[in-house]
Simulated scan of single mutants.
Amino acid sequence: MPEQAMTEYLETAQGRRIAYARQPGAGPGVVFLGGFKSDMRGTKAEHLADWAAANGRAYLRLDYSGHGESGGAFEDGAIGDWAEDAMAAITGLTAGPQVLVGSSMGGWIALLVAREMPARVAGLVGIAAAPDFTENGFWSGFTEEQRATLMDAGRVALPSEYDDAPYVITRRLIEDGRNRLVLDRPLALPFPVRLLQGTADADVPVDWAMRLLDHPESPDLRLTLVKGADHRFSTPDCLSLIETAITEVLRGRT
């Protein structure tokens, strides 16, 4: 197993201190974009670090502000901030087009990056991609009491099955998310796209994946459904499918 990449830091134009780990290799490089409240040392990110090293592929992963080893408080952040963090890292730390691998919220971030800087995207792999989830997941699932609390107090706490601490959802997160929606307007993805989705995912429903399959304009977009896979998508078989998806995107680009 290769030695773990050292954490480095990038100061963004917005004044945020972003932690990242970078491995040299051939291009197009691979950029891993993690999920909501996750970090760059998770199972999928680490597995892809090993895969990239074994294949001589350049690889970048990062913690958005308020996540992992980056500066800032999680509750202060929003989708637009985290997309800016990703774009700053891609612009400043990579060369040429990159294959974006977005997990859960990272799938939304990847789509925002693709919309804003398509020339820097060679392809996209979405793992339980969750575009627009602040609106279609959180807001639509809130009770009237939760909505009132959010608007009046500016935040509401939700239980998390992944952490002992609750998720604090802020009014800013919801309102900023409405300004970053990608499924409410045309979405051009002029490169190979692979979407991976588990049927037992309790956080991202299969019909979200179907909507994402149908919505964009792309010359090569495919969805793979894995029966019984959950939101983590981190079993050995699922990790192998992620490798295959990246390989297909790289092959399709050439």
Score class of each variant (00 low, 15 high):
218 S>W: 02
248 E>I: 01
107 G>K: 09
9 Y>A: 00
122 A>D: 08
192 P>A: 13
44 K>D: 06
144 E>R: 14
178 R>V: 00
67 H>K: 00
75 E>S: 15
59 Y>C: 01
72 G>N: 05
39 D>V: 00
145 E>K: 12
199 T>K: 13
182 V>E: 05
123 G>Q: 14
25 G>I: 04
220 D>C: 06
142 F>S: 05
127 I>F: 11
148 A>S: 12
51 W>G: 02
133 F>V: 07
81 D>W: 03
177 G>F: 04
115 R>P: 07
178 R>L: 07
101 V>S: 07
78 A>E: 12
49 A>H: 08
90 I>D: 02
153 A>N: 04
236 P>S: 14
211 R>N: 10
95 A>Q: 15
9 Y>C: 00
250 L>T: 04
215 H>M: 07
131 P>Y: 13
102 G>C: 09
37 K>A: 14
242 I>E: 08
28 P>K: 04
120 R>D: 15
245 A>K: 10
61 R>Q: 07
70 S>V: 02
65 S>P: 00
194 R>P: 09
103 S>K: 10
141 G>P: 00
183 L>I: 05
30 V>Q: 10
142 F>M: 14
72 G>D: 04
141 G>L: 05
95 A>W: 00
122 A>E: 10
211 R>A: 14
68 G>W: 02
232 R>N: 10
114 A>N: 12
53 A>Q: 10
201 D>T: 13
12 T>H: 01
30 V>P: 07
37 K>R: 15
122 A>C: 09
243 E>K: 10
132 D>C: 04
72 G>K: 02
